[in-house]
Write a protein that binds this DNA or RNA. Structure first.
Length: 486
RNA sequence: GGCCUCAUCGUCUAACGGUUAGGACGCAGGGUUCUCAUCCCUGUAAUCCGGGUUCGAUUCCCGGUGAGGUCACCA
């Protein structure tokens, strides 16, 4: 049984790289009929952010990546769902203690009473001498009597991993075998002076206890994996398989950061990117399941998912391509769905648009939306005619008299047309027929008509505009234009 | 700096050791068209460098270079 987890810290925001790694966990679990788990790694109390856990839960919910076990929101309250809980590390402090004791007893770990300031001083010295910055193992030389006394005095202390000699290897599904000489590895702190375990300790213990079979995480963890492997060996536990996903990069190839534009996953949803588009895009960033296909349904992504096909090199995020993909997904939506999706953006902008009008506007503007938020501006010219210069009404190959005459002809026809016949297709046929019958030029009729309806040099076609606006408003705007010409 | 990892168009990528090195985004041009958008067509541009192995290397091996990661009582 495959069991994988996303193990985020709730101390910051989730950027799209974190989301992508989570997606790979999700796809891998679903592909193999396994279990996807959310576990919160909040052992750093100083960096706790209020509401961080809730935000993460909502994000996964909003993008439709539902997990089988983990903290879930029930009526606004966090509840632990699953047989391996709790899934929040700060609630598991007692769970880690026996294992730290075990390591201490077996000689794989030791107490360290050095003050943080001392360690800091050591580090700067080592850096100055261009030596590796490692703990000097001073406390390893302590006699058992000295240790006992320090403990009795309740001296501030941590527990460190005693890294043995030799070398450590593990197989990464994406990169193959990775070997590191243990001499390079620092005696990692496992238990902090505040009684909280560090990531390394908590992560290994929880992965074991929660029976995690595959650890799929970001590339930045490769070097610490040695410590994790050592811990599995010392505790006599079966190791999970590892897969380290490449990082996402800025255009200048630096690690993706907030400084160079918005990268928080939530922000993309807030800006009107569809979750499906975002996930499809992230899935293909550094990965290709097969051939030339670009658009995949979630079912396809799951079906085709293969961790070993993930590219090992970092991927620059091509935001233009995300926009393109979002446009594709928007066009695939039905008008009704799109109206529903757009509504929150209008609400947020405090624009209220009559339901039937909005539906017609969305139908027309669908091909012109890059994000859902674009609807907020698009809707303006339908709600209210914006002022325009009367010269705009005149087609480049004609004059004002033509514009006026043609608008009058069209107006008469439209007036005689039933409101129910104001569809794009019918209007197109009627007006084109009118042009043909009177031996007119398309441009000389359609340009003034379109400008009369939109007030813009560039806009949807007059048929689309007329359909969206409806008969009454159309006649009103044409009349206004005719009077404007004078 | 030590260690680890990586390397195909500007970007994301495809290519049993044999292809005119393919696709997508972007960009440019064209078609459709009253304008915009959509849609369609065309073009643009890449195997980091040097050795080896091989009849043959983008592909395998070694070295160099470059890039990224990591070196916390953060995850």
């Amino acid at each position: 049984m495959i069991r994988v987890r996303s193990a985020p810290s709730p101390t910051g925001f989730w950027h799209i790289g974190n989301l992508r790694t989570a997606l790979y966990n999700y796809l891998f679990a679903k592909k193999h009929g396994g279990t996807y788990i959310l576990r919160v790694e909040d052992t750093d109390r100083e960096r706790m952010v209020e509401g961080g856990v809730e935000a993460m839960i909502r994000l996964l919910h909003n993008v439709g990546m539902h997990y089988d076990e983990g903290p879930m929101l029930m009526n606004g309250q966090i509840e632990q769902i699953g047989d391996f809980g709790p899934y929040i590390q700060s609630m598991r402090l007692e769970t880690y203690k026996p294992f730290v004791e075990q390591l201490l007893a077996s000689g794989h770990a030791y107490y360290c009473f050095c003050a943080p300031e001392e360690l800091e001083a050591q580090r700067t010295e080592q850096q100055a001498l261009k030596l590796p910055t490692k703990y000097n193992r001073r406390c390893l030389a302590l006699t058992s009597e000295e240790i006992r006394q320090n403990l009795e005095r309740n001296h501030s202390r941590v527990v460190r991993l005693k890294v043995p000699e030799g070398e450590t290897s593990f197989v990464d599904i994406i990169r193959g075998k990775i070997t590191i000489n243990n001499a390079e590895v620092d005696d990692q702190i496992l238990l902090k002076s505040d009684g909280y375990p560090t990531y390394h300790m908590a992560n290994v213990v929880d992965d074991h206890l929660m029976e995690i079979t595959h650890v799929i995480r970001g590339e930045e963890w490769i070097s610490s994996t040695t410590k994790h492997v050592l811990l599995y060996q010392m505790l006599g536990w079966k190791m999970p398989e590892f897969a380290h996903c490449p990082l996402l990069l800025n255009a200048d190839h630096s690690k993706l950061s907030k400084r160079q534009g918005d990268v928080a996953a939530e922000d993309f949803l807030a800006k009107g990117y569809l979750p499906e588009a975002l996930l499809n895009f992230l899935c293909l960033l550094g990965y290709n399941p097969k051939g030339d296909q670009e658009i995949y349904t979630m079912a396809e992504m799951i079906d085709l998912f293969d961790l070993s096909k993930v590219n090992p090199s970092g991927a620059v995020v091509n935001f233009d391509k995300l926009k393109w993909m979002n446009e594709i997904y928007i066009r695939q939506k039905s008008t009704d769905e799109l109206v529903e999706l757009c509504q929150p953006f209008l609400d947020k902008a405090e624009k209220s648009v009559e339901a039937e009008l909005l539906k017609r506007v969305v139908a027309v503007e669908k091909e012109r939306l890059t994000t859902l938020a674009d609807i907020v501006e698009k809707v303006d010219l339908y709600v209210k005619l914006v002022p325009y210069d009367q010269a705009l009404l005149v087609w480049k190959k004609a004059d004002a008299a033509d514009a006026k005459a043609n608008l009058q002809v069209v107006s008469a026809v439209l007036e005689a047309t039933e409101a129910s016949e104001f569809t794009i297709k019918t209007l197109d046929m009627k007006i084109k027929a009118l042009i043909a019958e009177n031996g007119l030029q398309n441009g000389n009729v359609l340009w003034p008509l379109r400008v009369a309806l939109s007030g813009q040099a560039q806009s949807p076609s007059p048929f689309e505009m007329a359909y969206a606006l409806g008969k009454d408003e159309v006649l009103r705007r044409i009349d206004f234009a005719i009077k404007k010409i004078g």
